[in-house]
Simulated assay, not measured.
Amino acid sequence: MDLVVGRVVKSHGIRGEVVVDVRTDEPEMRFTPNSVLRGRLPRGAGEREFTVTAAREHSGRLLVSLAGVADRDSADALRGTLFLIDSSQVEPSDDPDEFYDHELEGVPVQLVDGSAVGIVESVLHLPGGELLSVRTTDDREVLVPFVREIVPSVSRELIVLDPPEGLLNPDSLDEAP
């Protein structure tokens, strides 16, 4: 299984640097000079390997220089590229309250009363916060804010939800005044 460790947001400057939104707790290990990254190119253009030549922090993101990417046009073409590693390269966390996204995918989800909701399909990292994409038992996708008030219990075996009224009910959208 692939894990995303970064995503190219945009180009930076005229020398081919890319701005990378980091998705790893170990950027100093993953984006060190001479490290090789596997990149999934945008718009279904396949995969390619990239060698990091330099990386530096800038406004909460990384500015990364890659071998063979020497100008703004080349860097712009990489917008949306995902940098990936194999999940087997990651040691599980010893902290019971820390999870990698791939550890939660496929975990059953239920309500605090014990009724089944579905399973986690993925964890989405958005500017407003994290969301759990849950595939319900009736085959709908529900996006659940991954916050303690709504998700009071998380483990690698079971996720418990205490959702506000209407979050899981598709009919509540039709009942607007």
Rank of each mutant, 00 (worst) to 15 (best):
D174G: 13
G68P: 09
V107R: 00
F50K: 06
S155K: 00
V160P: 01
D86V: 05
Q110V: 13
Q110C: 13
S74R: 15
S59G: 04
L111C: 06
D73F: 07
L132V: 09
L63W: 05
L173W: 04
V144C: 04
L143D: 07
D25F: 07
L124P: 03
P170K: 06
L78R: 06
S155N: 00
E165P: 00
V52H: 02
R135V: 11
M29E: 14
G129L: 12
G60C: 14
M29T: 13
L104V: 02
G106K: 14
L132W: 09
E47R: 12
R140L: 14
G118W: 08
S153Q: 09
E91S: 12
S155L: 00
F31N: 02
V4D: 01
D86C: 08
S65Q: 15
R30M: 08
Q110L: 11
L84F: 07
G118F: 09
S65I: 01
E28P: 01
E103Q: 15
R56Y: 03
L124C: 01
R40V: 05
D101L: 05
G106P: 13
G60F: 11
V147L: 10
L124R: 14
I119M: 05
I119V: 14
P27W: 02
A67D: 15
G13V: 05
R40W: 02
R23S: 12
